[in-house]
Design a binder for these strands. Structure first.
Lengths: 238, 238
DNA sequence: AAACCTTTGTAATCTGCATTACAGAAGCCA
DNA sequence: TGGCTTCTGTAATGCAGATTACAAAGGTTT
């Protein structure tokens, strides 16, 4: 549960930032300036299972996931969890005044040992004003996320449990999947409970659906792992 | 079902744009330039019950609701409707390449005679690059919508039908409500079916919940209208 | 005013998923 | 190696909300 502040040089950061998907197309000049805008000691390590953030302990700033896997979740009045999203290396989250990239009001947990780099909001905001490209970049990112959420809402409203499970597995496999022959493996330790917490269902019901789907050859399930038959999944979705 | 293209002068538009909530804080100079960027004949009227847009007939551009009420909805493979959102005067929707303000992939229906003004995407995009303020404005708007959707997802996942109805009524009353004594009236013709289509439930089940809530004095229901007891609603929400 | 349509009320039946309750399997720690 | 914990499988029971089916009330049209 420990967290260490490490004092790395910002040149390391400069070499890392281009790996952030969102920044791929950004000129080196701007990336450099972003790296400079952070204090030196803003690379933080979190041990597996530690909590990076709680709803009433949020820093304003932009967070870059350098390594590891993070899970964002909320709880209802009686402690039931809802997993909102997950991020791996290259992901971004946080709050910078004009906008908010998810995270707001949720717990953030490290699913494995993780490293996060962050820039305080006050330092980042001026850059947004200075570089319109940066602003447009975030605009398109927000837009993508909004569309994702819209789609999610639609599925939650229309689909039965089987449909929701299929939708989530497909979504996860796109974000975190690696191909293996005709299968696509989800590269996140995914328990049935975990899946249920995303969907808003019970573990038992999800287990049942998973068994049904694997009987049909759409999935191959193992302890904490799910492999999706690409072909067959295609026929099930939409 | 008719729609008329009317040739109004753009000076009218200039006087209207400041009424768009999002543009309140925008300097007159920029507003003027936005108005100029539209062709003259881009004010369009739609009769009640007409369809402005379908999923496979979408114009790229920014749309301003000058008058009337619009409903956005999607359909599932078997025609069941899901009302995604509603807009009244002062609202914005549309697609401009770096970003998308909702609407994508849905039908848009005029709930009453409505007037819409629009700017083609190609004309608007340059303005985004020219004025960073404009860009930041949309960034914050997107952010607000994203937060809204996040909250919606949470309610859809956690709450039972009663909870969802309460959440939607409260939400609607905030957006479209006017106060009357200790009540707040929802200024949209809202049938039980309409509500059910937003929530993803059946009309019958929603009717039942509404009756229950009005027995408890939380609501006063009438044909197509709902009044919310402000005090009592507060105790029910969160 | 008659005929029609839209909205609402209500009730019986059915069903998908929650709830509850264990047991076995796999990984982890002493 | 044995005991603990986490993950998965399965089955009985209960219930919220879907489905189906009418009827009545209010609006609209002719």
């Amino acid at each position: 549960m420990l967290q260490h502040e490490t004092h790395e040089t910002n040149t390391e950061i400069t070499s890392f930032l281009p790996q952030i998907k969102l920044f791929e197309s950004l000129p080196a000049e701007i990336i450099h300036e972003i790296a400079q805008s952070a204090p030196r000691s803003n690379t933080v390590r979190f041990a597996k299972s530690s909590i990076l953030q709680t709803p009433d302990n949020e820093k304003n700033g932009l967070f870059f996931v350098i390594a590891g896997k993070l899970r964002f979740y909320k709880t209802d009045p009686f402690g039931k969890q809802h997993t909102v999203c997950m991020l791996i290396e290259g992901g971004i989250f946080g709050e910078v005044e004009p906008f908010s990239l998810g995270a707001r009001g949720s717990y953030v947990e490290a699913l494995e040992d993780s490293t996060v780099f962050w820039i305080p909001a006050e330092r980042f905001e001026p850059l947004l004003r200075k570089y319109p490209e940066l602003c447009l970049l975030f605009l398109s990112e927000m837009s993508k996320r909004l569309r994702d959420q819209d789609e999610l809402v639609e599925k939650l409203v229309f689909r039965d449990l089987r449909g929701k499970v299929l939708y989530f597995l497909n979504r996860l496999s796109k974000k975190f999947g690696t191909e293996e022959n005709e299968y696509r493996k989800i590269d996140i330790p995914l328990t049935h409970q975990e899946l249920a917490d995303m969907i808003g269902a019970t573990r038992e019901a999800v287990s049942l659906v998973l068994k049904e789907l694997s009987n049909e050859g759409i999935l191959v399930t193992g302890r904490k792992t799910i492999r999706i038959h690409i072909e067959k999944m295609m026929n099930e979705i939409d």
